[in-house]
Structures are given as structure tokens and as C-alpha cells.
């Protein structure tokens, strides 16, 4: 079900450090993310998957190349516009929940809207809360919630403003398998029912198996992709990737 491109990178490069110490975290990456699709980005540690997400979310700026969100080119924006873009068009789910401890669950969910001075649309709010399954805990503070509940609050927050795209950075990294399944199910539901575009960085094949498409990164390059992934297919791909990496290292040596 290929459809419109929600976000894409063109020849994206990100180099940290200078001169001899320079390390290319992203090396000419060009990928498209499609509207209404749930995409996973995978790869070994240091493959550049987080950097890719940060650049796409306007949190980090590319060294060269371009990032588009819809028609907007991010590197053309100043901090103020980027902030607004994040506020209105991007949602985030972080590994470490990152809820504001002084706000209740409901207030955390509404945060992006209230920052913009908007009121949440009542029916949409109810829908999100329903899918997230937080009803009775809405007025609790984060420290009164379990890790899974906190991450569901974070997910609800990412969805509340109906962003063009949601970036999830290892959203299940801190969760047990039951809580992980809940959070991933929730993300999947939003893609299926509301055509939400989601990009998720993960190194967990089980988590990646919830998605429509997996993009594999290695050494800062997008090396492979997998449609309709299953856990077994993903594990196999990762095995091949690792073997190539080892072979590459051996060849270099």
C-alpha cells in the first residue's frame, strides 16, 4: 500500500568531530517514509539509527544533505520555526518516558496542545485516551504510574496533536514484554485506524515485527529494507548484517 511520502531524507550526512577524529554517523542516507505506514529503523549500535531520527525530527541538524517533512525542508528553518514544527507536526516517544513530573497524566497528554495554547478536540482526546487505556489513571502523576503506563501516556501525548509523523526512540527499551506488547499494540492500532505515520527506532526484533517495513542501517548507510517483517525474517537479516560487518572488518584487517 504505497502512498504519499510523509518524510524523506536526501543524501543525508552527519559527521561528528573534525579532521582525523571525524566520524560519519550518517553517510549519504536517502530514505522515504510513507504516510500511514509504521516503519522501524534497525541496526547495530553505532549504525546511526538514532542520529537519523534526530535529524528527521529537527532535533539535530545535518552536516550535508536534506530532510523533508512533507514539502518543508528542515535545514531551511530557524530554531523558532523548528520549534513550531515539532510542536504542531511531529510527535515524540522516548525510551525514558520523559514525562513532566509535575503534571498529571492528562496534562502530560495535553502538553503539546496547551503549549500551543490550543484546546484538545474532545472526541479525539477521548479516542486517544481510549486506545491508550488510561481512563482511571488520568489524574495521576507520572511517579504514581508503572513504566508501561508512563510510556502509554507518552504515546498518547505524541498522538494528541495528530502530528504528520511520530518518532519513537526505543519506546519499549525500558519495558517488560507485557508492557512492550501494550505500547506496540497501541502504536499499531493508531496506524491501522487513523493512518498515523510512525517511525520507530529499535533493536528489538519482536518490536520491529509490529511494523509494516523495516529499514536496516549499518555504518551510517541504509543497507537493506524488509516489508511485512516477521521476527524470524528480521533475525535472519540482522544475522546477515552482522556477518557482513564482521567480514568487512576482517577484510579491512
Amino acid at each position: 500500500m504505497e502512498s504519499a511520502v510523509a518524510a524523506r531524507t536526501v543524501d543525508l550526512c552527519k559527521v561528528y568531530g573534525q579532521g582525523d577524529a571525524a566520524v560519519a554517523a550518517l553517510d549519504h542516507v536517502s530514505v522515504d517514509f510513507y504516510t500511514g505506514e509504521f516503519t522501524a529503523v534497525m541496526g547495530p549500535s553505532g549504525s546511526g539509527k538514532s542520529t537519523l531520527m534526530h535529524c528527521m525530527a529537527g532535533l539535530d541538524s545535518p552536516t550535508t544533505g536534506q530532510v523533508f517533512l512533507g514539502d518543508v525542508e528542515l535545514s531551511a528553518l530557524n530554531d523558532k520555526d523548528l520549534t513550531r514544527l515539532r510542536r504542531d507536526r511531529i510527535g515524540f516517544v522516548f525510551q525514558a518516558y520523559n514525562l513532566v513530573p509535575t503534571l498529571t497524566a492528562q496534562e502530560n497528554v495535553e502538553l503539546p496542545l496547551s503549549i500551543a495554547g490550543k484546546k484538545p478536540d474532545k472526541s479525539w482526546f477521548d479516542k486517544v485516551i481510549n486506545t491508550v487505556g488510561l481512563g482511571p489513571r488520568l489524574h495521576h502523576r507520572p511517579n504514581e504510574l508503572s513504566g508501561g503506563q508512563q510510556q502509554r501516556v507518552a504515546a498518547a501525548r505524541a498522538l494528541i496533536s495528530r502530528p504528520d509523523i511520530v518518532f519513537a526512540d526505543e519506546p519499549t527499551g525500558n519495558l517488560d514484554s507485557v508492557a512492550s506488547a501494550e505500547v506496540l499494540g497501541l502504536l499499531r492500532t493508531n496506524v491501522d485506524e487513523y493512518q498515523q505515520t510512525i517511525v520507530m527506532v529499535t533493536h528489538d526484533p519482536v518490536a520491529a515485527a509490529y511494523t509494516d517495513r523495516v529499514i536496516f542501517l549499518a555504518d551510517g548507510k541504509a543497507v537493506r529494507e524488509l516489508r511485512k517483517p516477521t521476527v524470524e525474517l528480521i533475525i535472519e537479516e540482522l544475522r546477515v548484517l552482522t556477518a557482513e560487518a564482521v567480514a568487512g572488518t576482517a577484510a579491512e584487517a
Binding site: 523558532k80 520549534t83 513550531r84 510542536r87 513532566v100 503549549i115
Partner: peptide, 10 residues
């Protein structure tokens, strides 16, 4: 950082 990430302006 989080507040900034979700769109709180400077």
C-alpha cells in the same frame, strides 16, 4: 529538553 522537543519555544 523534553518540553523543548515537544514544541515549547525558547
Amino acid at each position: 529538553g523534553l518540553l523543548r522537543a515537544v514544541g515549547l519555544s525558547r
